[in-house]
Design a protein around this nucleic acid. Structure first.
Lengths: 342, 342
DNA sequence: CTGTTAGCGCCTTCAT
DNA sequence: ATGAAGGCGCTAACAG
């Protein structure tokens, strides 16, 4: 029954006081080299571990941050998490990862759990927009806990965000399709209450406009980020009299589903239909028919989000509401390359 | 400057004592219904949140468990995590997820961080076997923290594990290839200091033996779980005089890499070479050339690991060293179906 | 350089 | 039914 070793145990053994032990362990200057060494050695010997809980309670800083994402099992999010960890690693922060599975209730529970756990900050891609103005999320900045959004965000005073320029991403994707000779370009978009999807949609429309192509309402279909949704969307498109010759999807998974369905119906890609996705998930590259996609630089996004957090922790009150916007990059692959061989 | 609300703040406002507030909040029976309601309401009103750190410090239970995996971005692990979360969700446990990225140093740091964070238990797939007998991992059971392995494990007294029968998995995969008519079956294995890879290898050998096929040393190659490694392994195999007509890989990623390389060299799959992977990663199913693979039931594995943890927390001392072994399932797909059309 | 004291927020006896 | 007091493990202020 190995009871936990505390600084009192060390103190007793050495016949000194706990404060001295604490000072020795924390490299305080006000202590003799001899005592320090003695303490250090017995600490190791007794297998002492600092109790972070006590420290956190005392200091009010838990040295822990919470990250909330829909799924960790999504390349985009896992890279963001990796970026966050990389950046926070040297600063000795612990990262608690929470998954919402896109369920509103879980998101609320996660936020509550993180607040209760006294995290020093919350970094999140929001899964569920709520209209209630007394939603728990508004309590985060009120409690003076740094809140930094990445990817899917909402605008709350006192919070920051790190995103890519989604408008530009949508524009680039669409422009590329136009340059490949496509004129009947469908767009499979996500929930437009999220700015990322709205912006991608706007970029799409703007590109059409700039190149003198009429916007066709029948060519745009709402989806959720899954292959099934992409398959269903294509089913819808196939009911039209004039079929589209290209599809720009706001999600790689939807793009994949679309491709699967198109192929199963005997369409050739990219000859009959060009397809472009969004996020640059690894599978887009590894597929036999590689998929053109827009890179969001998730690793950099995560690192930047962590940096913003660190800044805010430092500055106390000053300089909240920081906005960082990366420029996306289009990776052109087989699924949309009619003209050039890839 | 919203300071944190404590039970003392509530107490002061209501002109009662903190102990009473605590009792009210915790549904103690020794309190009047009126006071309870009063406290409850003002708690909500003042936006009180229980400080779990203080609670944890007091009780010695953090209501937090740590999960350590190589990567969260691996379908297998993310499903295990999901299973763990599902199971622990109703019990109000917080899950801290740590990634080792297969680096020994990170693994040690993670374990230390979790111990310091006073987690009530650690569930892990071990990434790095150490020979040092004073490795931090041995300190976990010594400190009486439940330690439950899943997937990659090592045998330490006082710990439990949940795995599949890897021997059987290897056997099933190999037997299937034999029944497809393959006789020159290569095996791409992982680090044999892990039992999972050793067992899969043994299963492979046993199946060969049972069907009267000689084991050929030249047909087995060590790999690490990545597509590159699979490509390299195939490069090696192609140098042989007699090429194998089938490959059983201990990893889906290696299998994928192998397939990529084989195709690029003009081989037809499954006609020229049958390929079987391990883990049943989603991509094995979604690929155009779907890959036969062995399912490890990660969701169930996670749930079971969590259950074992809960049991151990309950029982205090009794009944450690619990072993749970699932039976794997082979999903036969195109990459190995010469005889039947899939 | 080291000891003493107090307090972080909470719960839990022991009284009343 | 409620109040008072102590302690979980640690550090920081104040003494000496």
């Amino acid at each position: 029954m190995n009871k936990k070793v505390t600084i009192y145990d060390i103190a007793k053994k050495l016949d000194i006081t706990a404060a001295t032990v604490s000072r020795a362990l924390n490299n305080s200057p006000r202590i003799s080299a001899k005592t320090r060494e003695l303490v250090m050695n017995t600490a190791i010997e007794m297998n002492y571990k600092q109790n972070k809980l006590a420290l956190a309670l005392k200091s009010g800083k838990s040295k822990t941050i919470g990250v909330i994402v829909p799924h960790v099992n999504r390349s985009f999010f896992s890279y963001v998490i990796r970026g966050i960890e990389e950046e926070l690693y040297p600063h000795d922060y612990q990262v608690i990862i929470c998954q919402t599975y896109n369920e509103a209730e879980r998101e609320i529970k996660n936020i509550n759990a993180l607040i209760n756990a006294q995290v020093d900050g919350i970094l999140m891609s929001i899964s569920n927009i709520s209209n209630e103005k007394d939603h728990i999320i508004y309590k985060i900045p009120e409690k003076n806990i740094p809140l930094i959004f990445f990817d899917k965000k909402i605008n709350i005073k006192g919070t920051s965000y790190v995103t890519i320029n989604d408008f530009k991403g949508g524009y680039m994707a669409t422009e590329h399709l136009i340059k490949e000779g496509c004129t009947k370009i469908a767009h499979l978009y996500g929930d437009l209450s999220y700015e990322i999807y709205k912006d991608r949609f706007e970029g799409y429309k703007r590109a059409l406009f700039d190149y003198g192509i009429d916007f066709n309402e029948k060519y745009v279909i709402q989806t959720i980020s899954s292959t099934e949704s992409g398959q269903n969307a294509v089913e819808e498109l196939l009911k039209l009299e004039t079929l589209p010759d290209a599809i720009f999807s706001s999600s790689d998974f939807v793009a994949l589903g679309a491709i699967q369905k198109l192929k199963s119906k005997g369409f050739k890609i990219p000859e009959d239909v060009c397809v472009v996705g969004f996020s640059n998930e690894p599978f887009t590259k590894f597929m036999e028919l590689s998929i053109t996609s827009v890179d969001q630089f998730p690793l950099e996004m995560g690192k930047m989000a962590a940096q913003v957090f660190l800044e805010q922790i430092d500055n106390g009150e000053i300089k909240k509401d920081k906005k960082v916007i990366f420029t996306p990059k289009l990776h052109i692959r087989k699924s949309s390359s009619k003209t050039n061989k890839i």
